[in-house]
Structure formats: C-alpha cells, structure tokens
Simulated scan of single mutants.
Amino acid sequence: MGKKFIVKTQRGMESVAANYIKEALSNAEVWTSPMGYSGLVLVESEDETALEKIQEIPEVERVIPVLAEVPAVLDEIVKTAELVAPMIGENETFAVKTKRRGKHDFSSIDVNRALGARIQELTKADVNLSWPDKVVQVEIIGDRAYVSVVPGEEFRKFTPDKIDARKLFRKVTLVQMPYWGDYRACRSFGEKIGRAAQAFEVRELIIAPKEKMDAYELMEFIRGVKVGQESRYQIQMEAYPWKVEKVPISVWDLYQVVRDKRRNKRLLIITDPKGPTLAEVGKKLARDMHYAKEVVIFIGSREGIPRGLFRFADYVVDLAPYLTFATEHGIPAALVSLWEVYEEFLREGEEDSE
C-alpha cells in the first residue's frame, strides 16, 4: 500500500493539478475534489519520490504527507497520538491545527484540545500556538480524518524575526491632494486612495485641496475614498488576528496643514522628483522618523505639491529618479519606500545592541 498525500490548490485549479500529478506519477491513485470539496486532491502512490514530484507542480499550493487515516470520530483521531508522539521531541514545541469539512458531532477546537492533551501527555512537549516547531495537521474530509506532522509553517505572515511595519505607519499622517476632473475619474481615484490609506493602517488621511475646487468633484472623490476604505477594512477584519480600526479621514486646506504641522514641530516629508534620492538621505531620514512624534507625508495628484511649500518641509525626497508615479500609486510607493529605509535603521540598531 502506498503513501497518501493531501494536495491543496487554489479553488478551481484542483483538476489541473490532478492531471499533472497523474503525468508525474503514472501508477498513482488520484481523487479530485474528494466529497465535492474544491481546492483538494487526494493522492496515493508507491513512488518513493512522490512528494518531490508533486511539489514540482506549480499549481500545487501545499503537499501534506498523511501519517494516519482514521474514521472522523473524535476518539479515533485522539488514538493517532500514539503515532504522532515519536515525531515530536521533548524539547520541541507543537500545535494541533484542524481543518474540518462536513458535519460532525465535534468541533475543530474539540479536536485540537483532545489530541493536543494526549500528545502532551505522551511527549511532555510544550504547546506553542504561535511559533511551534511542529504542527500536527488534522484534515477532516467527510467521514475520514487524515493526520500529519509537518514543520512549523515555512511561509508565515507574522514571525518573530519580522519587524512590525505598523511601528512606523501608526504615526504617519498622509496629506493627499484630491483628484479633480471627470466625476467618474474622481470617484475611481478616490476608491484607490481610500483603499491604500486603509491598507497601511496609517494614523490619519487628510484630503487637502490647494485652492478652491468644484464641490461636486470633491464630493465624488470623497465618496470614492469611503468606498475604497470600507472594501479594504472588510478584508482586514477577516484576515488579521488583531483588531483593525478605520483610518480617520478629514478635509483641510493644504497650506493650513503645513502651517499647523510645522508649528507643532512634526516631521514633514514631501515626495517630489526635485529632491535628493532616498539613498542620499535615507539614514538620517530613518533616524528622524524614528524619533518623530508624527510623520506627515504630502502626496500630489495630477500636479505635484506646490513648490513654495518645499522650504517648510524637513525632507523633499525623490523616490524613483526619472520616474513620476501615477496618482493612485503615490501612497503605496511612498510608504513602502520609507518603510524600507526605516526597517534597515531598526535592524542596524539591533545589531549594534548585540
């Protein structure tokens, strides 16, 4: 009897992946969308190199070697701890993660708790839900449960060695000149800007006209900002393990923003091709951002920030020499570029303290 593998794909790509698996493993048994669940392929093969061959298929997102297959009954799943225990050292940490598909008289949390307790009893290993050395993966598909032991997730979003970008963005205020012109264009650009500001979870977004403008054009722009912000906020609510707040949005005259922020000694940054490059000022800029109470970044729209304001800025920075960013790219380009120099500053500080 061969080894079994649970193969995960993007939804709708399971049939494509299954066909490539059949080509790579000619004698394998392949079940596409078992029990009707999309994004899954079950594979059984006697080929000793099956894992490597499946991993070479780009449509495959993840391959999980099955250690034990049992009926989807809680007591039966808990019994697999006898097979799992030898694969977890006493000095290692572990976590049980369960994905349940179908109707059962127990929940995924019930599995995690019961199986985890039994493994801990057998191994004396500690549980670590955030950064485990080993993950006991339980995949339940209808009336069958497949148990595996895999290394701690290779492609984690949040790991201890990554510096939280929100360290910087929480004190960033974006000052965005509004887009004007055709109503539909105003709304479209507003959506992109609202989505970008919310995506970075900045301290505040200030919409700042530099002069009198058409009220209805501004109205459509702001409507777009609201729609874009809301769409991104809903995604964040589902995707992030922490509480997400909506970015405050206000309207203020551009020149008054400069007067107020300058008077209150905030760090003012204008992005414009007339300034020096980040490579020239990056280290000093990163240090100033680190110690600043608030970092205020001015971004133009159709036209750049008025040149007369340059002398009131602490920095005028050219993010990409010989290139001019489109209006909707201003926020992402500025924040990603500034984060890179800021992260380098933080890491150099960590090295110096060692």
Rank of each mutant, 00 (worst) to 15 (best):
E92S: 09
R118Y: 06
G102D: 11
V202Y: 02
T173D: 04
A125H: 01
E191Q: 13
Q120L: 09
A117V: 03
E211N: 12
K167L: 14
I163T: 13
S188I: 04
E154I: 07
P160E: 14
R203L: 05
S148C: 14
V138E: 07
A125Q: 04
G142K: 01
T93Y: 05
R156S: 14
R144P: 05
V96I: 02
A215G: 04
A199S: 11
R203S: 12
A114T: 05
F94W: 13
I163K: 14
D164M: 03
M213E: 09
F169C: 07
T98Y: 04
A196W: 11
I206G: 01
I141Q: 03
G190C: 06
V150R: 00
Q120F: 04
R187H: 15
P86R: 12
K167V: 12
G190N: 03
E154T: 14
M213Q: 13
R100D: 03
T159I: 13
V150S: 00
S130M: 12
E204R: 14
F94G: 03
L122V: 06
Q120G: 14
G181Q: 06
Q198C: 02
N128A: 06
A114D: 04
K167W: 10
R156C: 08
E191K: 14
E191M: 15
D214R: 10
G89F: 07
A165W: 12
F200V: 02
K124Q: 07
V135N: 08
H104Y: 01
D105K: 10
F106E: 01
V111N: 05
E121V: 00
V111D: 01
R170T: 04
R156H: 08
A117D: 02
E139L: 00
K99F: 11
F189H: 10
T159S: 15
I109D: 07
T173W: 07
F189N: 13
G152H: 00
A125N: 02
R144D: 07
E90R: 04
Y183I: 08
N112K: 08
T123E: 01
P86Q: 06
K124D: 13
E82Q: 13
A165M: 14
R118E: 11
E90G: 14
E201L: 15
A85D: 02
G190Q: 00
G89T: 01
Y146C: 00
L129C: 06
F106K: 03
E121R: 06
Q137M: 15
F106G: 00
D126G: 09
G181Y: 05
R156A: 12
E121A: 09
P209I: 02
K167F: 11
A185M: 15
A85N: 06
V172L: 10
Q176G: 00
A197Y: 09
F158T: 10
E217Y: 06
P86S: 10
G89K: 13
Q137K: 07
R195K: 12
G116N: 05
E217S: 13
F155R: 07
D133Q: 14
G89W: 05
P209G: 14
K157A: 15
K124R: 09
G142W: 05
